[in-house]
Design a protein around this nucleic acid. Structure first.
Lengths: 208, 208
DNA sequence: AATTTCAGAGAACAGTTGTTAACTGCATGG
DNA sequence: CCATGCAGTTAACAACTGTTCTCTGAAATT
Protein backbone atom coordinates (compact mmCIF):
# COMPACT_ATOMS: atom_id res chain seq x y z
CA UNK A 1 0.00 0.00 0.00
CA UNK A 2 3.03 2.25 0.00
CA UNK A 3 2.52 3.78 -3.45
CA UNK A 4 -0.54 3.91 -5.65
CA UNK A 5 0.90 3.20 -9.07
CA UNK A 6 -1.38 5.44 -11.02
CA UNK A 7 -1.83 8.87 -9.53
CA UNK A 8 -0.14 10.32 -12.54
CA UNK A 9 -1.75 8.17 -15.21
CA UNK A 10 -5.11 8.69 -13.57
CA UNK A 11 -4.74 12.45 -13.89
CA UNK A 12 -3.65 12.08 -17.48
CA UNK A 13 -6.69 10.00 -18.31
CA UNK A 14 -8.86 12.54 -16.55
CA UNK A 15 -7.54 15.34 -18.74
CA UNK A 16 -7.87 13.19 -21.81
CA UNK A 17 -11.47 12.46 -20.93
CA UNK A 18 -12.08 16.17 -20.34
CA UNK A 19 -10.84 16.83 -23.86
CA UNK A 20 -13.06 14.11 -25.29
CA UNK A 21 -16.08 15.36 -23.37
CA UNK A 22 -15.47 18.96 -24.37
CA UNK A 23 -15.07 17.97 -28.00
CA UNK A 24 -18.24 15.87 -27.97
CA UNK A 25 -20.18 18.78 -26.52
CA UNK A 26 -18.83 21.19 -29.11
CA UNK A 27 -19.71 18.76 -31.87
CA UNK A 28 -23.39 19.11 -31.17
CA UNK A 29 -23.41 22.29 -33.21
CA UNK A 30 -20.68 21.68 -35.76
CA UNK A 31 -18.73 19.02 -37.61
CA UNK A 32 -15.43 17.51 -36.60
CA UNK A 33 -13.92 19.02 -39.73
CA UNK A 34 -14.33 22.49 -38.23
CA UNK A 35 -13.43 21.61 -34.67
CA UNK A 36 -10.41 23.61 -33.55
CA UNK A 37 -7.71 22.43 -31.22
CA UNK A 38 -7.79 25.64 -29.19
CA UNK A 39 -11.56 25.52 -29.06
CA UNK A 40 -11.41 22.11 -27.42
CA UNK A 41 -8.71 22.96 -24.90
CA UNK A 42 -10.51 26.17 -23.97
CA UNK A 43 -13.71 24.24 -23.28
CA UNK A 44 -11.80 21.58 -21.37
CA UNK A 45 -10.01 24.14 -19.23
CA UNK A 46 -6.45 23.33 -20.21
CA UNK A 47 -3.70 25.06 -22.17
CA UNK A 48 -3.72 24.59 -25.95
CA UNK A 49 -0.39 22.80 -25.90
CA UNK A 50 -1.67 20.20 -23.45
CA UNK A 51 -3.69 18.83 -26.35
CA UNK A 52 -0.57 17.38 -27.96
CA UNK A 53 0.10 15.20 -24.93
CA UNK A 54 -3.00 13.20 -25.88
CA UNK A 55 -3.74 13.62 -29.56
CA UNK A 56 -1.80 14.40 -32.69
CA UNK A 57 -4.68 16.37 -34.19
CA UNK A 58 -8.42 16.86 -33.93
CA UNK A 59 -8.81 14.08 -36.50
CA UNK A 60 -6.95 11.82 -34.12
CA UNK A 61 -9.26 12.85 -31.32
CA UNK A 62 -12.15 12.07 -33.63
CA UNK A 63 -10.94 8.50 -34.06
CA UNK A 64 -10.78 8.16 -30.28
CA UNK A 65 -14.34 9.45 -30.09
CA UNK A 66 -15.43 6.78 -32.54
CA UNK A 67 -14.19 4.09 -30.20
CA UNK A 68 -15.93 5.68 -27.26
CA UNK A 69 -19.19 6.24 -29.13
CA UNK A 70 -19.37 2.83 -30.80
CA UNK A 71 -18.16 1.08 -27.71
CA UNK A 72 -21.63 1.83 -26.39
CA UNK A 73 -23.50 1.52 -29.67
CA UNK A 74 -21.90 -1.79 -30.46
CA UNK A 75 -23.56 -3.95 -27.79
CA UNK A 76 -26.81 -2.10 -28.38
CA UNK A 77 -26.90 -3.07 -32.04
CA UNK A 78 -26.02 -6.59 -31.11
CA UNK A 79 -28.70 -7.08 -28.47
CA UNK A 80 -31.32 -5.38 -30.61
CA UNK A 81 -31.34 -8.22 -33.10
CA UNK A 82 -30.43 -11.03 -30.70
CA UNK A 83 -33.85 -12.16 -29.49
CA UNK A 84 -34.79 -14.42 -32.36
CA UNK A 85 -36.86 -11.63 -33.86
CA UNK A 86 -40.06 -12.22 -35.73
CA UNK A 87 -42.82 -11.55 -33.31
CA UNK A 88 -44.07 -7.99 -33.19
CA UNK A 89 -43.49 -7.59 -29.47
CA UNK A 90 -39.81 -8.27 -29.94
CA UNK A 91 -39.48 -5.67 -32.66
CA UNK A 92 -41.28 -3.20 -30.44
CA UNK A 93 -38.84 -3.96 -27.65
CA UNK A 94 -35.91 -3.46 -30.02
CA UNK A 95 -37.23 -0.04 -31.02
CA UNK A 96 -37.65 0.90 -27.38
CA UNK A 97 -34.10 -0.22 -26.78
CA UNK A 98 -32.86 2.09 -29.51
CA UNK A 99 -34.96 4.95 -28.20
CA UNK A 100 -33.53 4.41 -24.74
CA UNK A 101 -30.00 4.41 -26.02
CA UNK A 102 -30.54 7.64 -27.95
CA UNK A 103 -32.00 9.24 -24.84
CA UNK A 104 -29.06 8.06 -22.75
CA UNK A 105 -26.26 8.91 -25.18
CA UNK A 106 -27.55 11.51 -27.61
CA UNK A 107 -24.15 13.08 -28.26
CA UNK A 108 -22.61 9.76 -29.19
CA UNK A 109 -25.40 8.94 -31.61
CA UNK A 110 -25.20 12.39 -33.16
CA UNK A 111 -21.46 12.10 -33.56
CA UNK A 112 -21.65 8.76 -35.35
CA UNK A 113 -24.50 9.82 -37.62
CA UNK A 114 -22.75 13.08 -38.46
CA UNK A 115 -19.24 11.82 -39.02
CA UNK A 116 -20.13 8.59 -40.75
CA UNK A 117 -20.21 10.55 -44.00
CA UNK A 118 -18.32 13.55 -42.60
CA UNK A 119 -15.34 15.43 -43.91
CA UNK A 120 -12.56 13.63 -42.02
CA UNK A 121 -11.39 10.52 -43.80
CA UNK A 122 -9.72 8.61 -40.89
CA UNK A 123 -12.87 9.05 -38.83
CA UNK A 124 -15.11 7.83 -41.63
CA UNK A 125 -12.84 4.83 -41.97
CA UNK A 126 -12.97 4.08 -38.24
CA UNK A 127 -16.76 4.25 -38.19
CA UNK A 128 -17.07 2.11 -41.28
CA UNK A 129 -14.78 -0.48 -39.74
CA UNK A 130 -16.85 -0.67 -36.56
CA UNK A 131 -20.12 -0.91 -38.48
CA UNK A 132 -18.74 -3.71 -40.61
CA UNK A 133 -17.89 -5.52 -37.41
CA UNK A 134 -21.37 -4.87 -36.05
CA UNK A 135 -22.85 -6.24 -39.24
CA UNK A 136 -20.76 -9.35 -38.79
CA UNK A 137 -22.10 -9.87 -35.30
CA UNK A 138 -25.65 -9.30 -36.47
CA UNK A 139 -25.07 -11.90 -39.16
CA UNK A 140 -23.98 -14.38 -36.50
CA UNK A 141 -27.16 -13.71 -34.53
CA UNK A 142 -29.29 -14.07 -37.63
CA UNK A 143 -27.60 -17.35 -38.50
CA UNK A 144 -28.71 -18.84 -35.17
CA UNK A 145 -32.33 -18.21 -36.03
CA UNK A 146 -34.24 -21.08 -37.69
CA UNK A 147 -35.80 -18.54 -40.05
CA UNK A 148 -32.37 -18.24 -41.69
CA UNK A 149 -32.20 -21.91 -42.62
CA UNK A 150 -31.06 -22.30 -46.19
CA UNK A 151 -29.76 -18.74 -46.50
CA UNK A 152 -26.51 -18.13 -48.30
CA UNK A 153 -23.66 -16.40 -46.50
CA UNK A 154 -23.94 -13.41 -48.81
CA UNK A 155 -27.66 -13.05 -48.12
CA UNK A 156 -27.10 -13.16 -44.37
CA UNK A 157 -24.57 -10.36 -44.63
CA UNK A 158 -26.86 -8.43 -46.95
CA UNK A 159 -29.66 -8.55 -44.39
CA UNK A 160 -27.29 -7.76 -41.53
CA UNK A 161 -26.14 -4.63 -43.36
CA UNK A 162 -29.74 -3.62 -43.95
CA UNK A 163 -30.48 -4.03 -40.25
CA UNK A 164 -27.47 -1.99 -39.16
CA UNK A 165 -28.32 0.82 -41.55
CA UNK A 166 -31.93 0.77 -40.44
CA UNK A 167 -30.94 0.95 -36.77
CA UNK A 168 -28.71 3.91 -37.42
CA UNK A 169 -31.43 5.62 -39.43
CA UNK A 170 -33.89 4.96 -36.62
CA UNK A 171 -31.48 6.25 -33.99
CA UNK A 172 -30.91 9.38 -36.05
CA UNK A 173 -34.63 9.88 -36.44
CA UNK A 174 -35.15 9.57 -32.69
CA UNK A 175 -32.36 12.05 -32.15
CA UNK A 176 -34.14 14.64 -34.28
CA UNK A 177 -37.38 14.13 -32.39
CA UNK A 178 -35.72 14.15 -28.98
CA UNK A 179 -36.99 17.62 -28.16
CA UNK A 180 -40.21 17.27 -30.12
CA UNK A 181 -43.68 16.94 -28.60
CA UNK A 182 -44.75 13.54 -27.33
CA UNK A 183 -47.09 12.86 -30.22
CA UNK A 184 -44.41 13.31 -32.86
CA UNK A 185 -42.05 11.06 -30.95
CA UNK A 186 -44.73 8.40 -30.82
CA UNK A 187 -45.31 8.70 -34.57
CA UNK A 188 -41.60 8.34 -35.24
CA UNK A 189 -41.38 5.22 -33.08
CA UNK A 190 -44.44 3.83 -34.81
CA UNK A 191 -42.99 4.38 -38.28
CA UNK A 192 -39.66 2.86 -37.28
CA UNK A 193 -41.45 -0.15 -35.83
CA UNK A 194 -43.42 -0.75 -38.99
CA UNK A 195 -40.34 -0.36 -41.18
CA UNK A 196 -38.55 -3.04 -39.17
CA UNK A 197 -41.63 -5.19 -39.36
CA UNK A 198 -41.73 -4.88 -43.13
CA UNK A 199 -38.09 -5.86 -43.35
CA UNK A 200 -38.66 -8.95 -41.24
CA UNK A 201 -41.72 -9.84 -43.32
CA UNK A 202 -39.44 -9.69 -46.33
CA UNK A 203 -37.01 -11.85 -44.43
CA UNK A 204 -39.56 -14.56 -43.71
CA UNK A 205 -40.62 -14.76 -47.37
CA UNK A 206 -37.14 -14.33 -48.84
CA UNK A 207 -36.77 -17.91 -50.00
CA UNK A 208 -40.16 -18.13 -51.71
CA UNK B 1 -33.07 44.23 -80.24
CA UNK B 2 -31.55 47.49 -79.03
CA UNK B 3 -30.46 46.26 -75.58
CA UNK B 4 -29.92 42.76 -74.27
CA UNK B 5 -31.48 42.99 -70.83
CA UNK B 6 -29.21 40.51 -69.19
CA UNK B 7 -25.53 41.12 -69.81
CA UNK B 8 -25.21 42.18 -66.23
CA UNK B 9 -27.41 39.55 -64.64
CA UNK B 10 -25.77 36.89 -66.76
CA UNK B 11 -22.35 37.82 -65.43
CA UNK B 12 -23.69 37.84 -61.90
CA UNK B 13 -25.12 34.37 -62.30
CA UNK B 14 -21.85 33.22 -63.77
CA UNK B 15 -19.93 34.42 -60.71
CA UNK B 16 -22.53 32.89 -58.44
CA UNK B 17 -22.19 29.58 -60.19
CA UNK B 18 -18.41 29.84 -59.94
CA UNK B 19 -18.78 30.23 -56.18
CA UNK B 20 -21.13 27.25 -55.97
CA UNK B 21 -18.84 25.10 -58.10
CA UNK B 22 -15.76 26.08 -56.12
CA UNK B 23 -17.55 25.34 -52.84
CA UNK B 24 -18.78 21.96 -54.06
CA UNK B 25 -15.26 21.03 -55.09
CA UNK B 26 -13.82 22.09 -51.74
CA UNK B 27 -16.49 20.09 -49.94
CA UNK B 28 -15.15 16.83 -51.26
CA UNK B 29 -12.55 16.87 -48.52
CA UNK B 30 -14.27 18.71 -45.71
CA UNK B 31 -17.67 19.60 -44.24
CA UNK B 32 -19.67 22.71 -44.89
CA UNK B 33 -19.24 23.62 -41.26
CA UNK B 34 -15.54 24.25 -41.88
CA UNK B 35 -15.85 25.88 -45.28
CA UNK B 36 -14.45 29.39 -45.20
CA UNK B 37 -15.72 32.35 -47.16
CA UNK B 38 -12.25 33.37 -48.27
CA UNK B 39 -11.43 29.82 -49.19
CA UNK B 40 -14.37 29.74 -51.58
CA UNK B 41 -13.69 33.10 -53.21
CA UNK B 42 -10.03 32.21 -53.63
CA UNK B 43 -10.96 29.01 -55.43
CA UNK B 44 -13.54 30.84 -57.52
CA UNK B 45 -11.09 33.56 -58.52
CA UNK B 46 -12.94 36.54 -57.07
CA UNK B 47 -12.34 38.98 -54.23
CA UNK B 48 -13.55 37.90 -50.76
CA UNK B 49 -16.02 40.78 -50.63
CA UNK B 50 -17.71 39.65 -53.83
CA UNK B 51 -19.10 36.75 -51.84
CA UNK B 52 -21.55 39.02 -50.04
CA UNK B 53 -23.17 40.05 -53.33
CA UNK B 54 -24.52 36.51 -53.57
CA UNK B 55 -24.70 34.92 -50.15
CA UNK B 56 -25.07 36.08 -46.59
CA UNK B 57 -22.81 33.34 -45.27
CA UNK B 58 -21.40 29.95 -46.16
CA UNK B 59 -24.46 28.40 -44.52
CA UNK B 60 -26.57 30.38 -46.97
CA UNK B 61 -24.45 29.08 -49.83
CA UNK B 62 -25.00 25.60 -48.43
CA UNK B 63 -28.76 25.99 -48.70
CA UNK B 64 -28.33 27.05 -52.31
CA UNK B 65 -26.23 23.95 -52.89
CA UNK B 66 -29.03 21.80 -51.48
CA UNK B 67 -31.39 23.09 -54.12
CA UNK B 68 -28.85 22.48 -56.85
CA UNK B 69 -27.95 19.01 -55.62
CA UNK B 70 -31.47 17.78 -54.94
CA UNK B 71 -32.80 19.42 -58.05
CA UNK B 72 -31.00 16.59 -59.81
CA UNK B 73 -31.52 13.92 -57.16
CA UNK B 74 -35.21 14.65 -56.94
CA UNK B 75 -36.32 13.37 -60.35
CA UNK B 76 -33.92 10.45 -59.99
CA UNK B 77 -35.55 9.25 -56.80
CA UNK B 78 -38.93 9.67 -58.39
CA UNK B 79 -38.20 7.72 -61.54
CA UNK B 80 -36.42 4.98 -59.65
CA UNK B 81 -39.61 3.82 -58.02
CA UNK B 82 -42.00 4.79 -60.81
CA UNK B 83 -42.03 1.63 -62.95
CA UNK B 84 -44.51 -0.35 -60.95
CA UNK B 85 -41.69 -2.22 -59.28
CA UNK B 86 -41.89 -5.84 -58.32
CA UNK B 87 -40.11 -7.76 -60.98
CA UNK B 88 -36.40 -8.25 -60.46
CA UNK B 89 -35.42 -6.67 -63.77
CA UNK B 90 -37.03 -3.43 -62.72
CA UNK B 91 -35.17 -3.35 -59.44
CA UNK B 92 -31.93 -4.04 -61.29
CA UNK B 93 -32.69 -1.14 -63.61
CA UNK B 94 -33.37 1.13 -60.64
CA UNK B 95 -30.02 0.22 -59.09
CA UNK B 96 -28.28 0.94 -62.38
CA UNK B 97 -30.07 4.27 -62.51
CA UNK B 98 -28.73 5.17 -59.10
CA UNK B 99 -25.25 4.04 -60.02
CA UNK B 100 -25.39 6.16 -63.15
CA UNK B 101 -26.48 9.20 -61.20
CA UNK B 102 -23.69 8.78 -58.68
CA UNK B 103 -21.17 8.47 -61.50
CA UNK B 104 -22.57 11.59 -63.18
CA UNK B 105 -22.93 13.79 -60.10
CA UNK B 106 -20.62 12.42 -57.40
CA UNK B 107 -20.07 15.77 -55.69
CA UNK B 108 -23.80 16.39 -55.35
CA UNK B 109 -24.41 12.96 -53.84
CA UNK B 110 -21.49 13.38 -51.46
CA UNK B 111 -22.75 16.78 -50.39
CA UNK B 112 -26.24 15.55 -49.59
CA UNK B 113 -25.02 12.45 -47.75
CA UNK B 114 -22.52 14.48 -45.77
CA UNK B 115 -24.67 17.45 -44.86
CA UNK B 116 -27.88 15.56 -44.21
CA UNK B 117 -26.67 15.02 -40.67
CA UNK B 118 -23.99 17.71 -40.83
CA UNK B 119 -23.18 20.56 -38.51
CA UNK B 120 -25.14 23.35 -40.20
CA UNK B 121 -28.75 23.45 -39.07
CA UNK B 122 -30.34 25.43 -41.95
CA UNK B 123 -28.76 23.04 -44.44
CA UNK B 124 -29.97 19.97 -42.55
CA UNK B 125 -33.42 21.51 -42.54
CA UNK B 126 -33.34 22.20 -46.28
CA UNK B 127 -32.27 18.65 -47.06
CA UNK B 128 -34.88 17.18 -44.75
CA UNK B 129 -37.55 19.27 -46.41
CA UNK B 130 -36.59 18.06 -49.87
CA UNK B 131 -36.42 14.44 -48.77
CA UNK B 132 -39.86 14.70 -47.20
CA UNK B 133 -41.12 15.99 -50.51
CA UNK B 134 -39.41 13.15 -52.35
CA UNK B 135 -41.01 10.66 -49.97
CA UNK B 136 -44.37 12.22 -50.76
CA UNK B 137 -43.82 11.72 -54.47
CA UNK B 138 -42.68 8.17 -53.94
CA UNK B 139 -45.83 7.56 -51.93
CA UNK B 140 -47.89 8.81 -54.87
CA UNK B 141 -46.12 6.42 -57.21
CA UNK B 142 -46.59 3.54 -54.81
CA UNK B 143 -50.28 4.32 -54.46
CA UNK B 144 -50.77 3.86 -58.22
CA UNK B 145 -49.49 0.31 -57.98
CA UNK B 146 -52.12 -2.44 -57.56
CA UNK B 147 -49.80 -4.06 -54.98
CA UNK B 148 -50.65 -1.18 -52.65
CA UNK B 149 -54.37 -1.93 -52.68
CA UNK B 150 -55.75 -1.83 -49.16
CA UNK B 151 -52.73 -0.02 -47.70
CA UNK B 152 -53.30 2.73 -45.18
CA UNK B 153 -51.97 6.20 -45.86
CA UNK B 154 -49.52 5.89 -42.98
CA UNK B 155 -48.14 2.61 -44.28
CA UNK B 156 -47.64 4.06 -47.75
CA UNK B 157 -45.61 6.91 -46.27
CA UNK B 158 -43.72 4.50 -44.07
CA UNK B 159 -42.64 2.47 -47.08
CA UNK B 160 -41.87 5.58 -49.10
CA UNK B 161 -39.56 6.77 -46.35
CA UNK B 162 -37.86 3.40 -46.26
CA UNK B 163 -37.30 3.55 -50.01
CA UNK B 164 -35.87 7.07 -49.91
CA UNK B 165 -33.48 6.17 -47.11
CA UNK B 166 -32.45 3.02 -48.91
CA UNK B 167 -31.77 4.93 -52.12
CA UNK B 168 -29.59 7.41 -50.31
CA UNK B 169 -27.75 4.63 -48.53
CA UNK B 170 -27.22 2.89 -51.86
CA UNK B 171 -26.02 6.07 -53.52
CA UNK B 172 -23.61 6.68 -50.66
CA UNK B 173 -22.32 3.12 -50.94
CA UNK B 174 -21.74 3.55 -54.66
CA UNK B 175 -19.91 6.78 -53.97
CA UNK B 176 -17.48 5.01 -51.67
CA UNK B 177 -16.81 2.32 -54.23
CA UNK B 178 -16.48 4.79 -57.12
CA UNK B 179 -12.72 4.41 -57.26
CA UNK B 180 -12.70 0.78 -56.16
CA UNK B 181 -11.90 -2.19 -58.41
CA UNK B 182 -14.62 -3.48 -60.69
CA UNK B 183 -15.28 -6.57 -58.61
CA UNK B 184 -16.02 -4.62 -55.44
CA UNK B 185 -18.33 -2.31 -57.33
CA UNK B 186 -20.20 -5.30 -58.69
CA UNK B 187 -20.55 -6.76 -55.20
CA UNK B 188 -21.90 -3.46 -53.88
CA UNK B 189 -24.46 -3.28 -56.67
CA UNK B 190 -25.43 -6.87 -56.02
CA UNK B 191 -25.95 -6.28 -52.30
CA UNK B 192 -27.98 -3.15 -52.95
CA UNK B 193 -30.11 -5.02 -55.45
CA UNK B 194 -30.87 -7.80 -53.01
CA UNK B 195 -31.67 -5.36 -50.22
CA UNK B 196 -34.22 -3.65 -52.42
CA UNK B 197 -35.59 -7.00 -53.44
CA UNK B 198 -36.03 -7.99 -49.80
CA UNK B 199 -37.89 -4.78 -49.12
CA UNK B 200 -40.25 -5.35 -52.02
CA UNK B 201 -40.80 -8.94 -50.90
CA UNK B 202 -41.82 -7.52 -47.55
CA UNK B 203 -44.05 -5.12 -49.39
CA UNK B 204 -45.86 -7.86 -51.29
CA UNK B 205 -46.56 -9.82 -48.11
CA UNK B 206 -47.29 -6.82 -45.89
CA UNK B 207 -51.00 -7.43 -45.61
CA UNK B 208 -50.74 -11.12 -44.74
C1' DA C 1 -25.84 61.93 -73.65
C1' DA C 2 -26.10 62.33 -68.81
C1' DT C 3 -27.24 59.85 -64.61
C1' DT C 4 -27.95 56.13 -61.69
C1' DT C 5 -27.19 51.36 -60.24
C1' DC C 6 -24.45 47.80 -58.66
C1' DA C 7 -21.03 43.63 -59.16
C1' DG C 8 -16.64 43.33 -57.91
C1' DA C 9 -11.88 45.08 -56.14
C1' DG C 10 -8.78 46.87 -52.65
C1' DA C 11 -7.14 47.85 -48.16
C1' DA C 12 -7.42 47.54 -43.50
C1' DC C 13 -9.33 45.79 -38.81
C1' DA C 14 -9.36 42.83 -34.74
C1' DG C 15 -9.61 38.21 -33.64
C1' DT C 16 -8.53 33.50 -34.22
C1' DT C 17 -5.92 29.53 -35.67
C1' DG C 18 -2.02 25.50 -35.32
C1' DT C 19 2.61 24.90 -33.88
C1' DT C 20 7.13 25.72 -31.74
C1' DA C 21 10.22 26.41 -27.91
C1' DA C 22 11.54 26.80 -23.30
C1' DC C 23 9.68 26.45 -18.65
C1' DT C 24 7.76 24.48 -14.08
C1' DG C 25 6.45 21.39 -10.64
C1' DC C 26 5.34 17.04 -9.01
C1' DA C 27 4.79 11.89 -9.12
C1' DT C 28 7.71 8.27 -10.12
C1' DG C 29 11.51 4.60 -9.94
C1' DG C 30 16.20 3.71 -8.44
C1' DC D 1 16.16 10.86 -0.73
C1' DC D 2 17.44 12.19 -4.94
C1' DA D 3 17.45 12.25 -10.04
C1' DT D 4 14.55 11.50 -13.81
C1' DG D 5 10.30 11.64 -16.61
C1' DC D 6 6.61 13.94 -18.21
C1' DA D 7 1.76 16.34 -17.96
C1' DG D 8 0.65 20.82 -18.32
C1' DT D 9 1.92 26.08 -18.72
C1' DT D 10 3.49 30.36 -20.73
C1' DA D 11 4.85 33.22 -24.54
C1' DA D 12 5.45 34.10 -29.10
C1' DC D 13 5.13 33.34 -34.32
C1' DA D 14 3.18 33.78 -38.91
C1' DA D 15 -0.89 32.77 -41.22
C1' DC D 16 -5.49 32.95 -41.68
C1' DT D 17 -10.34 34.23 -40.72
C1' DG D 18 -15.05 37.23 -41.37
C1' DT D 19 -16.43 41.86 -41.89
C1' DT D 20 -16.32 46.92 -42.71
C1' DC D 21 -15.69 50.95 -45.59
C1' DT D 22 -14.30 53.10 -49.74
C1' DC D 23 -13.70 53.06 -54.47
C1' DT D 24 -14.13 51.79 -59.63
C1' DG D 25 -15.96 51.01 -63.97
C1' DA D 26 -19.33 49.51 -66.89
C1' DA D 27 -24.16 48.21 -67.72
C1' DA D 28 -28.76 49.98 -67.25
C1' DT D 29 -32.04 53.64 -67.04
C1' DT D 30 -33.79 58.05 -68.21
Amino acid sequence: MSHTPGVRLAQKRKTRQALLDAALALLEEQSLSSLGLREVTRAAGVAPTAFYRHFRSTADLGVALVEEALGSLHPMIRTTVSPAEGSDERIARAVELIAGHVAAHPAHVRFVARERHGGVQPVREAIREQLVRSAGEVRDELAKDPVSAGWSEADLLMLAGLYVDQMLATASLFLETLQAPEEERRRAADTATRQMRLISVGRRHWLD
